[in-house]
Design a protein around this nucleic acid. Sequence first.
DNA 1: CTGTTAGCGCATTCAT
DNA 2: ATGAATGCGCTAACAG
Lengths: 346, 346
Amino acid sequence: METAFGSQPSVGRVTIADVARAAGVSIPTVSKVINNRDGVAAATMLRVQQVVDELGYETSLVARSLRSSRTGVVGILVPEFEPFSTELLRGISRAASGTGYELLAYAGLVTGADQPGWERRSLSRLSGTLIDGAIVVTPTTALSSSSIPVVAIDPHTGPEGHATVDADNEGGARSAVEHLLALGHTRIAHVHGRADLASAQLREAGYRQALRDAGITVDERLVRAGGYQEDQSAEVARTLLAEPDRPTAVFAANDSSAVGVLRAAAELGLRVPEDLSVVGFDDVPQASMTTPPLTTVAQPLTELGGRAVAMLLTMLRGEPTSAHVRLATTLRVRQSTAVVPTDTRR
Amino acid sequence: METAFGSQPSVGRVTIADVARAAGVSIPTVSKVINNRDGVAAATMLRVQQVVDELGYETSLVARSLRSSRTGVVGILVPEFEPFSTELLRGISRAASGTGYELLAYAGLVTGADQPGWERRSLSRLSGTLIDGAIVVTPTTALSSSSIPVVAIDPHTGPEGHATVDADNEGGARSAVEHLLALGHTRIAHVHGRADLASAQLREAGYRQALRDAGITVDERLVRAGGYQEDQSAEVARTLLAEPDRPTAVFAANDSSAVGVLRAAAELGLRVPEDLSVVGFDDVPQASMTTPPLTTVAQPLTELGGRAVAMLLTMLRGEPTSAHVRLATTLRVRQSTAVVPTDTRR
DNA sequence: CTGTTAGCGCATTCAT
DNA sequence: ATGAATGCGCTAACAG
């Protein structure tokens, strides 16, 4: 680390002032050159351009965004980077490629502060300035007073104020449970997700509906809270599966929860799928790496991300958009489900 | 959410000035309250705090970072969000959890501008302002004149100026080729990666070394450029596999390339692994979802990310760090490799 | 064509 | 304990 004296820009970043000084022009002139604005003599332009290249100057995103409204950056706000978000991110990245927008993904929950207001906080911190628009993943609160276009993926409540993109959670859940029913299961448990997310509520609703349609009364003791999280789900599964009349199948609200259930089953010496069938939801890439590979309801995650981008770009263009997009889910049968064990069949 | 009348903040974001006005104090006072600085009467503090909550005010990351040096945000600079980066991101996210730092991932290449200087550009745009430190994924140029601490993952050249984290690329490549040799293969092709990345060079070196150690001269026609990309690799594989004395096995420089090879093989009617063995590198989650599941060299991706965070945090604390961390790789044998077909054995 | 003047939202002296 | 003034890096109006 060299200490620079004088105006050596080696430490600290090169600012527009450094360029102006080196080129012997004023700051606004440099600004004009950088932004390809006309009203600059060709000769001056060339000289400034050269100095810019020499010094390796880049406009500060921050300073620029403070001044001008447009930044050409779209923000993706996620609670944290886990498989679900990162798959969406892939779809978003692909869809945003070549649109002229750059992507800025912000994880607002890493601080460990479990306040549910992370999305509002993050949005406030970035909007109005840094980003032109935002895609918010699994927001749990209303994002009403935002000054920039916002698209929500898998939000708190369904179609409310703002534009949303999600999958057919209820139908997907129903297909999962129907799959288990078709295999002869009747004692089917449900490890449900975060109660503050519409997706979790809808999946539970689908679960209940499917059982009702089959003429089975839901045993409330078989419905437990997993919070969409592996550890929490493993814990509830441990108690659930240790009980005398344990279920023969578990429908977990998402893949992380399913992995937790798988873990608990292994600890209790239960074989999957011989002793216990498990179904997840999402079909994150990791779902095929579990032992055994997980049967799950696939959401088209990358497509969800792509759609969100498309909607946001439309909104940024000032054109009208459909307020809500819902994509279909598909049951992906792998090896964590099998016919109900004969000794527990009734 | 009721609209507070008086100073209607409904449009645009709530600024510190709005809070000051509503609380009947000056801006600096609000600033002090927000930053828990002393020199404010308890009563004033309370009142301001209350207004802040009511209005839902959050300091603008942009404005703050422009003024003060520390932002509490770490930047992750990636060319784009694909499986490799997103896996690293997961590891980084996990490791950063609870450290008090928030994460900001920036994809600098989405514009489609294929200029290799994306990492310098992005770094310049964000550093000195938005972020306190950065983790740069697969930088292809030197990041010398940065004013903030930087850790590079899988960089251009090995240990040069700055701190780096990578895996044992050469050893991993050797183990992959040795695996193929053990299965009886002798005509082993290599689809190599981006020439501007040390990892690609090292994997090729490992490939050559393993063959040499086995007393096999490298047939240069079997070494093609795949650029770490699926499409490009599929293309070179198509020509490679259509030739009369085609190889019986391909070692692809990464999993994306391997997927491309798999695709080309399928198009040509070649069965994997019966007619052709394929090995990849990285072990991204998607590798187990290919048909057949891909044999590959696993890099501990999430751990690479975690280590990078640890190093960066150490640097941010001003403490000395080891300049270079290298992690081991593991061969993960799945179903895309088999003994060499008898009819082509020589 | 160019430079001067403002001010974006905030944090920091330094007065009061 | 509080507020007026200043500046971070940059761009938008204007004036020369």
